[in-house]
Design a binder for these strands. Structure first.
Lengths: 210, 210, 210, 210
DNA sequence: AAGTAATCGAGACGGTACGTCCGGTCTTGAA
DNA sequence: TTCAAGACCGGACGTACCGTCTCGATTACTT
């Protein structure tokens, strides 16, 4: 939700807000981040590209990161609407946990490599590392909902007796999500279907000899 | 490695470099990042605090991130020299893999919470997310050597028959390292001894019912 | 004339110009030149003293000399408005050319010794020596109008039969104006009423024996 | 003999001075002033072009202006040595004052238009306007000796009964020298033989009707 | 002829100012 | 009121030079 960045200011009258400007700003912000990277994306640049006054940005958002976060949320919404709200946004339950996780992770791999998503999400993640407030928002708004899907799927597997009852699903999911996230974010290794498949196997059965 | 950021410029004569200035710059950079955070740390600020001309920074480093990377490497070296190269920098091999990993991870948790390290390493990690070159340098110079220790320890466990032979140690270590890293970097959850202990258990034995 | 010194830039919108800033910049520039001299007057110094952003100076003027030229023109305008457009700005015609010239030159001597005028006009003259464009502007805007008054007065004297018809007034006036100017500018000698009186006598009657 | 840490100048040991460096510095200074103008001539630039350390300049001169003054004096000496010390440097006495003055002034016009002299002398004159010390040195070392020649010639004319006895020669010479100097320095008008001839005529016989 | 002290080329250093870019605020006139 | 436009104050950027300060390597005078 857009909020004025000086909280004591009178909230602008949202009803009069120009939808066209908002869209133009989202587009300009995403395009600039993709083209020149996050640090060289400036508010002035976004305003100029969107054909919008700077004040129109400052009126509705508090920072570059904030603009980008919303733009990205909007992009995700669009994408999920296009995709008809299945696919990546619900984890299938075929009864085979390993297969289901592998399938979803392969979709995630595809998305991480989609250039439309890469620049802005990387930018947001980076800013979130250093800017705690944004980090938590990013986490809450974007990551947590996706992670919750894994929690649900793991719980279902517990019900089905496929996962130990004493396992905490919130931690379990990190066994495959975090490695993938880190390789992507920090260039600590290549990303592939084979890699995510391996992660699922290790996570499910452990690495210890039996 | 310090290198002039305009690559066509004549390399400065390193022999004449002022050791005192270099130290002062490291100290100032780390202190500022700790005090005001990465984005509000400026080259001018570092120069002023170090009692140094700006040009002395630009002569030897190409960017704020570069200064900080070196300063941090230097800090790590110091720390490891102080610690006499035991502690966190070699993984014990008591024969009990789980116990050894838990012990090392507890030290890592301590270090992640050490305020001396937190601000600069977070800053570097963030910049590394968005600046691929720095990211890879950060990875190569700082992360990889630590990860190699895990690789070695897991290999030893494989020799001892405690870990399956078909496990790739480089991937295995991500089961505990990446979740911890992500929680720390992206505020995706709290960090504690209990948490890292749990990660080790899940990683070793898997989450699947047996 | 204010003009952006990068001629390909869009001209700033003069209607929105802050009159307050302009005045503050004039005042600061003149004060600084008077206090610390031209070479130690800096754009940063003017901006700081005027309580103005540097960009506001760069937006409207192309150089320190340009600021000072305008400031000085403004000062002259003010002075002449105060003086009610008599005094030094019209040469009297009492019928006695020698007396009239001596009277005006005495006023000029006074003005040259006025500390409000000395520093900036000296500074401008100096810059004009080395910077041809400014030199010509200085000449056209400031000197030429004053000189024209002498041309007119000499012409009147020619009409009255007091000055030879074949004399070029534009050259004649240099006989008294240039010596005074050079003594003042280049410290080639002291300046006094007696001196200017002498100049007028020599110029009118020549130095040759009759 | 030279004390190392005196509060005054250390007074370097001139006997050890490198003649080659001095020449190189003169040449570089004059060339740079001619090529890029006085303000963009820098000590660093002179040192680099002369293939000399900066300290070698600071050891022997106190400022850019000082270097240039000496370089110019040296150039003048050379020129006068080349010219065999007659020509422009002694005013002829043919008994006809007007003719003699016109002849010398024509030589001066030539010299003012000589590009070798123009840039450096203009530069020095400009600096002299704003820097009183240099101005007086310039005056004393360069101008005054030349002016003295006019004083002598005018005195001779007084002896010969061609110039009134009550004329002050030091002021008289300004009637032709200053107008020429001002036109040249301040671009207040064109310079030609005709112009200087006219100045001499006006100065000798005055502009008043007889 | 060897010793020694200053000068030399080179260039790093602490600084100051440059001219530019952009952040975030404020003002104007059109819609 | 909101909007596009953009001037405004402020502050950091990366660069250019300032004048000072080492550093060997000559170089020229002493002994």
């Amino acid at each position: 939700m857009p909020k004025p960045h000086a909280p004591d200011k009178p909230a602008p009258h949202a009803a009069r807000r120009s939808e066209k400007s908002r869209r133009a700003i989202y587009d300009a912000a995403l395009a600039l981040v993709a083209e020149v990277g996050y640090p060289r994306t400036t508010i002035e640049g976004i305003a100029a590209r969107a054909g919008v006054g700077k004040q129109t940005i400052y009126r509705w958002w508090s920072s570059k990161a904030d603009v980008l976060l919303e733009a990205f949320l909007d992009l995700s919404d669009q994408a999920s609407r296009e995709a008809g709200a299945q696919d990546a946004y619900v984890i299938p339950d075929t009864g085979d946990l390993a297969a289901d996780l592998k399938a979803v992770l392969r979709l995630t791999v595809d998305q991480l490599k989609d250039p439309r998503f890469e620049a802005p999400s990387r930018a947001l993640a980076a800013e979130g590392v250093v800017n705690e407030e944004l980090g938590r928002t990013f986490m809450t708004k974007l990551l947590e909902p996706s992670l919750q899907l894994y929690v649900d799927r793991v719980r279902a597997a517990q019900e089905a007796g496929q996962v130990r009852r004493d396992i905490d699903p919130r931690i379990a999911l990190e066994l495959w999500v975090s490695p993938l996230a880190q390789r992507w974010l920090q260039y600590t290794g290549p990303i592939s279907y084979e890699y995510t498949d391996t992660l699922v196997d290790y996570a499910l059965h452990g690495i210890a000899a039996r």
